[in-house]
Design a protein around this nucleic acid. Structure first.
Lengths: 231, 231, 231, 231
DNA sequence: AATGAATGAGCCTTCATTCAT
DNA sequence: TATGAATGAAGGCTCATTCAT
C-alpha cells in the first residue's frame, strides 16, 4: 500500500526517488534505442494487464514484437524492466503538477489544491500504482522504492504541517512527522481504494465521486489539524 | 493494504467474515484430525516465515513432518491451506477484545480504547496481517477476504460516527461512511507501517512507541470529527 | 592424462580415493533405489558413448526410462551423477586385483605382475578412464579426483622403489618419489595410448599387443632402476 | 595429455605438423590483416585465461576491441581461431631450438641437451599446452593434431634409439618405437605435471626444480636403455 | 570491412500434482 | 490414510550466428 501523501505546498516539489542501478548499458544505436523503448512500453502494458508475477518474459517480447533473446540485450531480468518502467513514469507520479492556487495564503485552499493534485495523479497512474503495490509485496528492491516514494511525500507534508504550526494555524500538540504519516496515509489509502481497488471490480456499487473524495479528505485533514474557521 | 479500522464501541462486535468454500470435508478419524491440524500449524509457520509465494507445498509437509502426498488428503492446493490458517486466526483478528471502558459515555475515552484494542490486535497478528496483504495482491479470493474484513470494521465505525453525529458530538458535514473509510484507513495504514513494515528492517531507527501511536491517531481522529473539548 | 601407475607390491593396496560429497540423500524405498541405480547405469552408458560435455540430462533420463524431473530426486546436476558413476567404479579401478605372484621375492616378477594388473584394470575400464580424462579438463572437482587417484599409485610405487633401494636392488641415485612419478607416468601414458586413444579409431594400424606392452614397460622400468641381472 | 617426447638429436628437426584446413582465405587489405591479427592474439589470451570451453566468441571480439560480427569475416567458428592460434605458435612448440652440444658423440650429453630443450619449450608454452590438452578432449580435429605432434617427436626419438642400438649403446631387446613411446611419454607426463598441473595451484608445495627434472628423466631414460658407464 | 543489434534453438531446473504401494 | 517417488509442463537464460546499416 502506498503511503505517500498529498502535497502541502506547491512550490516544494517532491524530490525524485533514487533510481535503480542500470546493469545493462544503454543502447548506442538508434535501432537499439527503439527496441529498448518498445520493450519498456510492452512491459508496462503487460504488467498492468497481467500483473507482475503472471508476466512471462516472452509475453513482453511477444508484445514488443521481438525475439525472446533480445530482451537480454537490455535487461537482465524481469525486475530490471520494471525498474525501467517505473523510472519512465516517475516524473508524473512524483510531481502531481499542482498549478498556482488562488489565495495561496489560505491554508485550506492550498491543502485542497494539493490533495486534488495528488489524487488526480494517483488516478492517472492507477494501474501503475496497483502494480507497484503488488511488486512491493514480492521484491524487496521495490518495497524499498515504494517506501522512499512514500517518505518523500510524508516529509514534504510534515514540513508543511510544521510550518502551519509555527504560524499557529495547526494544532501544536501533534508531532508533525507522526501527523503527516497518519494524514498522508489516510489520503493514499483513499486513493488506493478509489482508483485501484474499484478498478476491475465493475460490480462495485459506488464508483466514488472525485470531488467528494477531495472534499472529504481535505475537510478531515483540516479538522484533524484544527485549522481555524469553519464554513 | 488492510483498510480495516478500529472498533468504535466494544459492544458492537465485528461480525466474522464469510468463510471460504471448503472443498475437502473435515477428517473423520482422530489421526486425520491430527494430521490436518499439523498441516495448518506448519503452513502458518512457513507462510509467516517465507511468505506465501516462496512457500512450496513440500516446505509445509516437511514442517508438518508428513509426506508430500498427505497434503492432498486435506487440501487441494496452497490457497486452501491458507484459508484454513486464516479461518483459525480470524477470531482474534476480528475481535480485538476491548474490555469495558471506564466512562463509556466519554466519546474520547471510548475512541481511544477502541484504537488501542485494534492496534494491539494488529500487533499481535502482525505477521499474519503481512501475509494477508501479500496474498491479497496475488489471489483474488483473498483480496475479497481482505476487503470484506475491512468493510466490516468500516461499517461498524461508520455506525459509531453516525451515532455521534446524531448526538451532535461529531461534525455533521461529513458522510459517515466516507469519514469512516478515511479514518479507519488512517489507523490501519499506521498499524501496517508500525508493525509490518518496520519488522525485518532491524536497522529501522524509530521503533514507534505504541502509546504515542494510540494517542496520535486518537487525537487526529477526534479532531477530524471535531469532538468537542480539548484537554 | 592419468598419471597413476602400476602396483609394485600386491599386499599394499591403493587406498580408496576420498569420495565426493553426497548432496542428495540416498533413497529410502526399494523403488527409489532402483530408479537411482538405473540413472547411474544410464549415465555411465551415455557418458561413455557421448562424452561428458555432449551429454544432456535428458539423454540420461531417457536412457533410464524415467522423467526428466526424476533426475533431480537423486542428483542436483551432471557433476553429481558422474561422481556416483565414478564412486561405483572406483573399487575396480583402484584395486587391479593382482593375485599372488610366484616367487614374490623376485623384484622383476613382482614388477611384471603389478604392471600387468594395472594395465589390465586400465583396459577393463578404458572408457571410464577416457571419461575421467575428459572431465578432468573441465571440472576442477574431477581434476582433483584424478590427481588424488594418481598420487595414490605414485606414493605406493615410491614406497616400493625406496624399499628396493634399501635392499640395494634399485639405483640409489634417484629420488624415489621423482622416479615413481616418472615411471608411473610412463606406464599410465602407455595405457592411455593403448586403450583410450586407439579406441574408436579403428583405422589405427597397430592394435598393440597386451603382452608386449607389459613386457616393454616392465623391462624399461627395471632397467631405469638398474635392477640387477639381465636375461 | 601430450605424449610427445624430447628430441634426441638437434640436427633432426621435428617436421611441422599438417596444418588445419583454412576455410577463410587470408584478408586482402591491410586493415583486414590487422583485425585478423588482433583476433588471433586476443583469442590466445582469452583461451589461455579462461579455457577453450568457457570462452565465448564475444569474449574474443571484446578483447580484440572489435564487433562481434567481425569475427565471421575471418573465421567461421571457435575451432578455426584456435587453429590459427596453434599455427602461429607451432614453430616454437615444435623446434625446441637445442643448440650445438659439446661432445655431440656422448649419448648421455646429447640426451640431456635434448631433454632440457624439450622441457624448456614445454615450460615456455605451458599455457598453450594446457589448452591443447583441453581441446583435444573435446574436438576430434585437435585430438588428431595433438596425436600427430606427439608422433613426430616419438618417431624422431625412435630413430635416435635405433641408431644407438645399432651402435650397441642402447639395449637391443626393446622395440625402438615402443621404447620411444614409453620414454617420450614419460618425459611429456613429467612436463605436464610440472608446468601445467602445478600452475594455478599456488598452494602446491613442491614447485619442481627444473634442473632436477632434467637430470632425473635423463638418468631414467639412459638407464632404461642401458647406456653404458655410470658416473 | 565493420558494426552491434536481433534471432531463436536448446538446455536446465522447479514444483504442483498424481499414483503405486 | 500415509507415504514418497514419478511425472512433465513451463519458463528462464545463453550464446553462436545472421543481418541490416
Amino acid at each position: 500500500m502506498d503511503t505517500s501523501a498529498p502535497e502541502e505546498i506547491d512550490s516544494e516539489k517532491v524530490p525524485p526517488v533514487a533510481p535503480f542501478s542500470q546493469l545493462r548499458e544503454p543502447p548506442t544505436t538508434q535501432r537499439g534505442a527503439r527496441t529498448r523503448a518498445a520493450l519498456v512500453k510492452a512491459a508496462r502494458k503487460v504488467f498492468e494487464r497481467d500483473g507482475y508475477l503472471d508476466t512471462r518474459l516472452t509475453d513482453i517480447t511477444k508484445e514488443a514484437r521481438c525475439a525472446a533473446g533480445s530482451f537480454y540485450t537490455y535487461f537482465s531480468n524481469k525486475e530490471e524492466v520494471l525498474a525501467a518502467v517505473l523510472l519512465e513514469a516517475q516524473e508524473d507520479m512524483m510531481h502531481p503538477g499542482m498549478g498556482r492556487v488562488e489565495g495561496a495564503d489560505d491554508p485550506h485552499a492550498v491543502l485542497e489544491a494539493s490533495n486534488r493534485a495528488y489524487l488526480a495523479a494517483y488516478k492517472r497512474n492507477a494501474k501503475l500504482m496497483a502494480l507497484l503495490e503488488q511488486v512491493a509485496q514480492v521484491e524487496p528492491e521495490f518495497r524499498e522504492f515504494r517506501r522512499r516514494r512514500g517518505e518523500a511525500f510524508i516529509r514534504r507534508n510534515a514540513r508543511g504541517i510544521a510550518d502551519l504550526q509555527a504560524r499557529s494555524v495547526a494544532d501544536r500538540e501533534v508531532d508533525p512527522m507522526m501527523a503527516s504519516r497518519a494524514l498522508s496515509g489516510m489520503v493514499s489509502v483513499m486513493a488506493y481504494n478509489a482508483f485501484v481497488r474499484s478498478e476491475g471490480q465493475e460490480e462495485e456499487g459506488t464508483p466514488v465521486d472525485f470531488e467528494e473524495l477531495v472534499a472529504t479528505v481535505t475537510r478531515l485533514w483540516a479538522n484533524a489539524l484544527r485549522f481555524p474557521g469553519h464554513r
